[in-house]
């Protein structure tokens, strides 16, 4: 299981967000360059139609592959009341022939993206990962070098934290509290619930950049 919230930010404010995150987390950022391939089951295959994501980490000297299945969100009155989405996620590191393997099993490529950005991994009440990425599409199949932004000027911010059935309440609290620190720059909510950009972002970003400038000078 994982707890997740998402939000969007204008690219012009990403630098300020990075400064804020750096200050809050106290760890260096990690560069992200992930080729994500979304596959769907072919006709008649499976009890229900299924979807699986293959992630190729291109930021490593040797690209590494992960297969990821994102399950349904937790339901019920309790789940409705919390501002964080709790869902099942299963991942496995795999060898580089994984795309060929799933094609042979009867899966088809639905779409692919190249996500470029950075992440912070730290512990704050729970192990938390913040990723800031721009989604890029490829003009030709697998042509990651020619990728162009899907939404120019806008980047996706995602906060995730691993959770289990017996501790997700604590993890939800940890994620919610962390989101409050970022509130002046962006609003974070459950995936699929669009909240747009926040009006205070420009002012907050300017303040962060000027403070940061003072510190470094």
């Amino acid at each position: 299981m994982e707890c997740v919230v998402q939000g969007i930010i204008e690219t012009q404010h990403v630098e300020a967000l990075e400064i804020l995150l750096q200050g809050l987390c106290g760890v260096p950022k990690e560069h992200l360059r992930i080729h994500e391939l979304c596959l769907k089951s072919g006709p008649n295959l499976g009890v229900v139609p299924s979807e699986v994501r293959l992630l190729c980490d291109l930021a490593q000297p040797t690209p590494s592959w992960t297969v990821r299945h994102v399950g349904g969100a937790m339901r019920g009155a309790g789940a409705e009341q919390i501002s964080v989405l709790v869902r099942t996620v299963v991942e496995s590191k795999v060898s580089k022939n994984v795309l060929r393997f799933f094609y042979a099993l009867g899966y088809k490529l639905d779409h692919e993206l190249l996500k470029i950005g950075f992440s912070f991994n730290f512990h704050r009440g729970a192990p938390i990962t913040v990723t800031v990425t721009s989604a890029n599409k490829m003009p030709k199949l697998h042509a990651t070098e020619e990728a162009v932004p899907v939404t120019p000027g806008i980047q996706l911010v995602e906060i995730t934290a691993p959770a289990a059935a017996d501790n997700y309440n604590d993890v939800v609290s940890a994620v919610s509290s962390f989101c409050e620190y970022l509130a002046p720059l962006l609003h974070l909510s459950k995936p699929g619930v669009s909240t747009g950009i926040v009006p205070t972002a420009s002012a907050a970003a300017a303040a962060l950049l000027s403070n940061s400038g003072n510190k470094t000078s």
Partner: peptide
């Protein structure tokens, strides 16, 4: 566990 979730095999 991934294969179990996919319910295709």
């Amino acid at each position: 566990a991934v294969m179990e979730k996919l319910q295709s095999y």
